[in-house]
Structure formats: C-alpha cells, structure tokens
Nucleic acid binder design. Structure first.
Lengths: 342, 342
DNA sequence: CTGTTAGCGCTTTCAG
DNA sequence: CTGAAAGCGCTAACAG
C-alpha cells in the first residue's frame, strides 16, 4: 500500500491554517501562538510528517551528504577509518556516500563526477596509487566544495589534510630492529607513488643511516599491492639469494603475513633467523604464530578527525580559511615476530 | 571562489530560448531541431552544466539513493557484500548510503529513521543479533519502499530475501570432520537469535545424527560475538575439562582463529589432536599455520544479487509482486587444520 | 519545433 | 500572530 508522504500543506489543510504557519510552528518560531504550535505538532505527529529534505536542499543548496572516496573498503584500514568518520558524522545529521576507486585513477575521477552530480556538501578522499594529477580535485575546490585529503597525500593540492606520521612509525620500527641486533634489514615497500609508502621508506633509510648502517639497494624491494600474496611472491625471490636478510620491515601487515609461511617453509625461524615487522596492526596480526610485531595507526581517529575538520569547514565556512594539517602519531607494538631488546 | 552551479535557465538566457527547450534538447527529444540541440549542448558544456538531482527528485519523488544497514563494516564479510552491492548499483546511477547498527537494535531503528528522512528509494538490510521485532521494517514497507533482507533473516517479515545456505555449509563441514575420523566434535556457535547461527547449528546437529552420533550438550557452546577473543575465551573453558573434543566447528573464522594459540599452547596439535573448521574463508585464513579449513561463502555475489533484486523491484515495481527468496551455495575449503579423508 | 504555465515541498519576505 | 506570494531548478502538459 503506497501512501504519499504527508506534506506541510496536508497539515495546513487539516488545521485550516496556512503552510507558512505550519512551517513556523514546526521550527518553533516565537511568532506563533502556543496553542497553534501544539495543534500543529500534534497533527504533524498524527500524519507522520517528515520534512522533505530534497525540497529543503533545493532551497538552501545543501544536500547534507558528504562524499567519501577510498581505494577500497574491504580491508581493515579504510573500513575502520570510515567507521570513525561515520560515528562523527552521524550526530550532525549528515549522511555519507562512499565510493571505492579500487586504486584506479579513472574510477576515482568517475566517482568524483558522480559525487559532484549528487551535489555533496563536502568530500573526504584518500587518492589511488595511480593518482598523480589533481585536476579533478581542483575542479571540486573551484566550485567551492570543501575537501579533506586523508592518509595519502595529494601533493600540491591545497586543502585540509589529515595523515598518520608514517615516517616516524617506520623509523621506530627499523630502529627497534637494529637495537635488537639486526643489521641486514630488508624493506618490502609499497607503490612508490604513494606518499605513505615513500614516508615509510624514508623512515627506514634514516633509521639505518642514523645507526651507521649503509642501506643495501639489494634489500630494498617494492611490492605492487597490499595483499599477502604480494608478500609471498617477493619473499621467494629474496630468499633465493645467497645473502639472506636478518630482518624484514614490510609496508603493511598483510604483506608481512604473506611472507611468514615461505620463511618457515625454507627452514628459517622467526624471529631467531629473521625478524619481521609489519604496519597497521590488523585485528588478526596478534593471532599469528609468532604474533606479528607491527606499527599501530590511529585509524579510527584518522577518520573521526577528518570528519570533524570537514564538518567544521562546511558549517563555518569563512571567507579566509587556513587549511589544517594534522599528523597523528603511530605506535610500535612489539610482539613475538621480532627479538627482544638486548 | 564559489561559483553558483549553472542552471537550465542560465543556458536558456545565454541562447535566447526557453528553459523547456533546453531541457528537451538535453534529453535529446525528437521535437528539437538539430541545430538548436547542438548549440544547447555546446553551451551546457561551456557552462559546465550539471542537472540538479534535488530538483528532479523533488519532481518525480525519487532520490536515487538506496540505504544499506549492516551490523558492522570493518569485517571482511559485510565489507565484501557491500562491495558487490556497490559494483552493481554503480552502473544504475544510484548511490548508496551505508549505516552500521553495531549489533544494536536501537541504533538500527535510529538508522532506519534517518534513511526514511533521507527518502531513500530502497533499503538493503542485515538485522542485528538483537533484532526480534519487525515494526521498524513494517513501517518502511507500508510507505511503499522496497526492502531486501540479506544474510540474516527477519522471520515473519515479508520482503525479498537473499541468503547463503548456512545449514548446508555447516552440514558439509561437520560431515567432513566425521568422515576424517572425528567423533567428539564441539560447536562454538554464535548468538542464537541470528538465523545464520541457528542454521549452522542445525547443520551441525543433523550431520552428527545422520552419522549415528548423539550430540553431546557439553560440546555445544555459544560465543557472544564474532571476534577472535570470543573464541579465545571459550576455548579455555572447553579445554579445561577432562573430556577434550577431537574437533571444533566454529561459527566463523575469527572465532576459530582465536582458539588456535590456546590449543597449541596446551600442547595439543592441529589437526592431529584437534581438527578445526571455521566459516567465511576470510582472506587471512589460508595464511595461518596450519592454514584454516573453512566454509567459503559467496559474499560478493550475496551483495550483488541483493542489489540486483532491489533495483529490479524499484524500477519495475508492479502492483502484484512476488517476493524473491534466494539461497546461495557455500563451499567447504579443506586446508591443513583438518585431517585428510581416510 | 518552441514557449508558457504550473507545480513538486519547502522557506522566507512582505503584508496584513 | 498569521496569510499570500515568490522562488529554489526542473519537467510536463498545454498551447501555439
């Protein structure tokens, strides 16, 4: 049974008043007599009135929707960030439309097109590993829609930005490896186009050199993606060489975990022969054996803060706006896949 | 620099024609002369015209938004289902608004309120483990908004439904355990209010009895949630008893994985002393050691099909509608945490 | 082939 | 205190 939604004038007619009176009453305007208000409110409830957001939006040019674009949603990292985002946004009356770029620039551009059409009031985005141009973002900003870039940077694009200090996290991890006696530390890095991956690599390199170790190019590898099979594949190459590393710092937990079966299968022990450190602290990482040492990231906060900053920008959009730049602190979580400090 | 979005009449004015001509031209109406069309299209592009969905929606009472409510989004299961859903919906011009109920009935009800306010054209929902009443769903249906229930059933609620055959998956898993020589098979079941959990339990029970084994109530436990620590906690109780099971069938992979460290720590071997089977086939499950035997579910298809059915209902909503009921087939994936067939 | 008009549901002047 | 009227951007009769 399809019932039309009740409208303002439905209430107005039922009460023999005008639509504007009803509108004002519902907005608790001081211009309306108490009794009128009460009867209006009662009738609204009786008719199960719900204001039509589209009409309101049409009027004040707002959709109360914010767009989110992430590379993917099935992994722990972005799903958790979205979680934080949503928990914040929920209480503001805003809704989230989420799109996945699948690490494809074209899909990302297409999504932005869709979101632009949907007239979102703001955008939160983490770019793909293919994204090198900002034209699509610039177009968004030119039409006055606030944008927050999070986790992965879009260099040269001016906007609010919220990141995790990847450099610091990587530095700590590698520094820790060195302090536990490791010298030949390999790095399984991610796609070099991503700022996160570049930062982690820099952290790795700096930790080495500051500890008097010359980085060995042979030990610096790049995986094409962030899944366990990427780790599995690349570790086979690495372990087939004569000089085997005594530690591995992987770009994330998934890659690290992909290496574990191969390492053990070669008769090597973790951490006695090879220490292993990941990045992200995924929920499962502590359940592997040995449990995985990793760098925890404040992902939930990352999403939450991005949401807070965007909403702030949307609601009190000033003429002159100072873009924010936030850097959240990660934390090394030591478990069994690395040796104890000596 | 905030530029107003171009409107139909902007184009009309620039070309000295009426707004309706522009509208018709843009819709490629046969009533419009080719030259007019061309000039309109050119001008639309020049002004970067984007039709205002809110105005259109206001007119034809559609938002082109469909609401999605899932218990959570950070786990592999629902994230992947949403993935499938989104991949389908993407090409239809519809957008998704996703909400998480966090297994709370109140949050679920509140989300439905929000989605109703947002005037979504349809709803896809997997209810919480607390949901026992359908009043909120009924209200939705009464206002004529198509609903698809997926994965977890809302008994007695009439709508399209898409599930995985949990009974069948569980039966296969337990039958396999028995065929590999296990007799004392424990079940770590999930919240009994969930149809999925009840079906899995029934599959477990039937597999036992059909193989001439009397179920042992001592071996049938219930975990409060779906995380590894739930498994960790409950397995400690179980292994503290004198009669230790020779196999465990867990409600999902996460719970199964939570038990692994405890089992091994007690000096028991998997699968020689205890076979272990999970449910879901999460991405990491094959990387544990031993790798986890599990029941794979067609999650992506689950989401995709739910989307397809909903869109079909929305687009060709007939007067008389036969609700669909789809049951997708899971598949047992045998790995190292269970013994080979004898 | 094209223009005029009305109206989707709501808010907001401007008049009473 | 309340009503009438205009308009957000678009489409769909109804006229030419």
């Amino acid at each position: 049974m399809k019932r039309r939604h009740a409208t303002l004038s439905d209430i107005a007619k039922a009460l023999n008043v005008s639509a504007s009176t009803v509108s004002r009453a519902l907005h608790d305007s001081p211009l309306i007599r108490k009794e009128t208000k009460d009867s209006v409110i009662a009738m609204a409830k009786a008719l199960n009135y719900q204001p039509n957001q589209q009409a309101i939006g049409l009027l004040n040019k707002k959709t109360k929707i914010i767009g989110v674009i992430v590379p993917e949603i099935t992994g722990y990292f972005f799903a958790t960030a979205i979680n934080g985002l949503q928990d914040f946004v929920e209480n503001t009356g805003y809704k989230l439309i989420i799109g996945q770029s699948n690490e494809s620039f074209d899909q990302e551009a297409k999504l932005m097109e869709t979101l632009s059409l949907a007239r979102v009031d703001g955008l939160i985005i983490s770019p793909t590993s293919e994204t090198t141009s900002n034209i699509h973002l610039e177009k968004f900003r030119e039409s006055g829609i606030p944008v927050v870039v999070f986790d992965r940077d879009c260099p040269n694009f001016l906007s609010d930005k919220v990141f995790v200090d990847d450099y610091e996290g990587a530095f700590q991890a590698v520094d820790y490896l060195i302090k536990t006696g490791c010298r030949k530390i390999a790095h399984l890095g991610g796609p070099a186009n991503l700022t996160t991956c570049r930062c982690r690599k820099r952290g790795y390199l700096d930790a080495l050199t500051q500890n008097g170790i010359t980085p060995d190019p042979q030990l610096i590898l790049e995986v094409p993606g962030f899944t366990p099979d990427c780790g599995e594949e690349i570790i086979r190459d690495l372990l087939d060489r004569e000089a085997i590393p005594d530690a591995i710092f992987a770009v994330n937990d998934a890659v690290a975990i992909g290496t574990m079966p191969v390492i053990l299968e070669k008769g090597l022990r973790i951490p006695q022969d090879i220490s292993l450190i990941g990045f992200d602290d995924e929920p499962y990482s502590q359940y592997f054996m040995p449990s995985l040492t990793t760098v925890w990231q404040p992902v939930y906060e990352l999403g939450l803060l991005s949401g807070r900053i965007l909403m702030n920008h949307i609601l009190h959009s000033p003429e002159e706006y100072d873009y924010r730049y936030e850097l959240l602190k990660p934390e090394l979580i030591v478990r069994q896949s690395s040796k104890p400090l000596v």
